[in-house]
């Protein structure tokens, strides 16, 4: 890793933000929700009745877990929106890459008239 927090760049700002960050109780609650969501994910693939909606349900649960970690553990919910911006813009492109490659390789060939 080429990044190391600087010495003279102290954390005055981070310290000033500290009170805005959630406390231990919130962190524990999020951990509990994450555990429940993971259990739900594993349960979904084992319940035959849910087979038809398995993919969307799993995707929703995954996005929920992803968002919880990013918003609470990585503090994006509480921090400056600049951090959200420099992360979410590339993240959107990454999701776009995944979706468009799946479309191009898996979905569109089925609709090819010749």
């Amino acid at each position: 890793m080429s990044f190391e927090p600087g010495r003279a760049e102290t954390t005055k700002v981070a310290a000033a933000e500290e009170h805005a960050h959630p406390g231990t109780r919130t962190y524990l609650r999020i951990a509990l929700i994450l555990t429940v969501l993971t259990a739900a994910e594993v349960a979904v693939i084992h319940i035959p009745a849910l087979e038809a909606v398995m993919v969307p349900v799993l995707l929703v649960l995954t996005v929920a877990k992803f968002s919880l970690v990013v918003m609470y553990y990585m503090h994006l919910k509480f921090d400056s929106r600049i951090f959200t911006g420099v992360f979410v813009a590339p993240l959107t492109l990454a999701v776009g890459v995944i979706i468009s490659l799946i479309l191009l390789f898996k979905v569109l060939p089925k609709y090819n008239p010749w």
């Binding site: 990044f3 927090p5 600087g6 760049e9 954390t11 700002v13 981070a14 400056s80 600049i82 951090f83 420099v86 992360f87 979410v88 813009a89 590339p90 993240l91």
Partner: peptide, 13 residues
């Protein structure tokens, strides 16, 4: 904002 934190979020992006 701390410069390192902006840089690191960009790296994560």
């Amino acid at each position: 904002l701390p410069t390192w934190k902006i840089g690191f979020w960009t790296f994560i992006g």
